[in-house]
């Protein structure tokens, strides 16, 4: 029974992890940018939902689309005016500039929001129900459902729309995409905007189930990085699957080994997977 409870906890957590990684994997796959500021964007999304909830009294789940729209604009502008300078250039350039962005965003957040811990606390935050002896926290279940929904929407966007086709085509063969009329600069900005919007949604959900500070970005970037590699950069659904793997491993590990081991577990798992099946994981990376 304990194991079943851990499994449920892990799956619920893993769905959110998957959503965190989704934006990073999308940007990485299409723009070839490993966005080290991805966690900072998650953090900004968390604050956006927090202030929409505490300031304007908007339910956090209703605030998500608003935060996503705002983060899309932030992402679009960042790409258009900053990151387009280094898109598809050497990996080190992209790491440097996004690392710098991460530092700046974190510092600005600390100035603006202070370093206090904050939690998005709607009335149903503590609510849960029991099913066959397993406790399911309502907010976590809802966050999981939203994460799956968004991953499904991203899949539909990529595979069933003209824009998604152009995004995938650009990721696979930039020369040919340009030859047939795709404007990569515009497309990159939209893609980064979508990545930032997904980060924003992940941040809002994170704020409902955990605590936000300006410093959560770094560890969330690391986690997203691991999941993006495990899940691959091609398919949103496999990224969510990667999130579930990490979620379950962490929730089992924190029980049996202790909660301080969660990062050891996710990175240990990454090393194991790269050793065991390097070709599959890095095929698109």
């Amino acid at each position: 029974m304990l194991f079943a409870q851990i499994l449920v906890n892990g799956v619920l957590l893993g769905g959110l992890y998957g959503l965190m990684a989704l934006g990073m994997a999308l940007v990485w796959g299409v723009l070839n940018i490993v966005n080290l500021a991805h966690g900072a964007l998650i953090m900004l999304g968390g604050y956006a939902v927090y202030f929409l909830f505490t300031g304007a009294g908007i339910d956090p789940f209703a605030a998500l689309p608003i935060a996503m729209a705002g983060m899309f604009c932030v992402g679009y502008l960042l790409q258009r005016f900053l990151l387009n300078l280094i898109v598809r250039s050497a990996l080190l350039n992209t790491l440097l500039i996004t690392f710098g962005l991460d530092v700046v965003l974190t510092y600005l957040a600390q100035l603006a929001f202070s370093a206090d811990f904050r939690t998005i606390n709607p009335s149903y935050a503590g609510a849960n129900f029991t099913l066959g002896g397993i406790t399911v926290p309502l907010a976590r279940l809802a966050a999981f459902a939203v994460a799956l929904l968004l991953a499904g929407l991203v899949w539909l966007l990529l595979n069933r729309t003209r824009l998604g086709r152009a995004i995938r085509a650009t990721a696979q063969n930039l020369v040919a995409a340009r030859l047939y009329g795709v404007d990569p600069r515009q497309l990159y900005a939209i893609t980064f905007g979508i990545g930032a919007a997904l980060a924003g949604a992940a941040g809002g959900l994170y704020g409902v189930v955990a605590q936000i500070t300006p410093y959560i970005g770094t560890s969330l970037t690391a986690k997203s990085f691991v999941i993006a590699i495990i899940g691959g950069l091609d398919n949103p659904l496999s990224v969510v699957l990667g999130g579930l793997v990490i979620g379950i491993a962490e929730s089992a590990g924190s029980l049996y080994l202790g909660p301080t081991f969660t990062d050891v577990i996710s990175f240990g798992l990454l090393v194991l997977i790269l050793v065991a099946r390097p070709a599959r994981s890095l095929r698109t990376a």
Partner: peptide, 25 residues
């Protein structure tokens, strides 16, 4: 319109999607 040397297909997209990209504009 050019047919580039080396074909330059979108390898992980279906034939139909490749054709659709030709009509992107």
């Amino acid at each position: 319109v050019q047919v580039p040397e080396g074909r330059q297909l979108f390898g992980r997209m279906t034939v139909e999607e490749n054709l659709l990209m030709g009509a992107y504009r």
